[in-house]
Amino acid sequence: MIEQITEMFQHSFMIRAMIGGTLVSLCAALLGVSLVLKRYSMIGDGLSHVGFGALAVSTAMGASAPLEVAVPVVVIAAFLLLRISENSKIKGDAAIALISTSALAIGITVAQMSSGLNTDINSYLFGSIIAMSQRDVIFCSVLSVVILVLFVFFYNKIFAVTFDENFAKATGTKAGIFNMVIAILSALTVVVGMKMMGSMLISSLIIFPAIISMRICKRFKTVMITSAVVSIICFFVGLVISYLYGSPTGASIVIVNLCTLILFIIIERIKKVIIRK
C-alpha cells in the first residue's frame, strides 16, 4: 500500500490536488468554526449553489476563465446571504434555500440548453480529482496565507465577535466588518474548493470539522486547532482512498468526515460514562 501511495505522488495532478486540497481544507475548517457557532452554516451551502450557477452560466456563455466570473458573483452572494441571515432571523433559512435552489436551477438549465450536460458541469456538481490547475493552487496558497494571518492576528477579536456580537459591538469592536470579511473569505474558499469537492459537497468541509471538534474540545482555541487538524487528516485519507479504489474524491472525503464524526461521538459518550463513575 505504501508503494501505491508513493506512486500516487508521481502524478503532477495528484500533487496539485494534494496541496490545493490541504489548503482548502485548512481554510474551510477555520472559517467553519466561526460560521457554525454563529449559526451561519447555511451560508456556506448557499454560496456553493450560487457558485455552481455562476460557473455553469459562464461556461455556457463561452467565458475563457469561468472562475473569474464566478468569484465576483459569489462574493456578492456572500454579502446578500449575510444580510438576510442578520436581518430577518425568522425567514433567513427559507430565503437562503430559495436563492441556492434558484441558482442551481438556472445553472443546470442554461448549461443543458447550450451544450448538454457535459463533463465540465458534472465535475462542477460532484467534483473531480484532476480539476486543480496550477493557478488554483496559487490561488489557494494566497487565500490560506490571508486566512492564517487574519486568524492569528485577530484571533481574540474573532473570538469576541463569534461568542457575543452585541458585547463586541458595545465595547467598540467593528463586528460587522468581521462578519463581512469571514463571509467573503468563505465565498473564495467555496469557489476554489468546489472544483475538487463538487458544489454539492463543498459545504461539508466548512461544517464537519467544526462539529467534530466541538464534540470533545472545551476551549475555543482547541476547537480551532483540532478542526484544522481533523479537516486536513480527513482530506488526506479521503484522497488516498479515492485514488486507491477509484471512488469519487469529494464523496470519499465527506464519508471519511462522517466516520470521524461518529467516532468522536462515541469517544464523547465514553468520556461521559467514565466521568460519571
Partner: peptide
C-alpha cells in the same frame, strides 16, 4: 443568545475577552 449557551470556550477565554476594548 441561544447560540451562546452551548459555546465551546473556557471561562477564562470568555472573561478576558472583556479586555479587548
Amino acid at each position: 443568545t441561544p447560540a451562546q449557551k452551548d459555546f465551546p470556550a473556557s471561562v477564562f477565554e470568555v472573561v478576558i475577552s472583556g479586555r479587548l476594548n
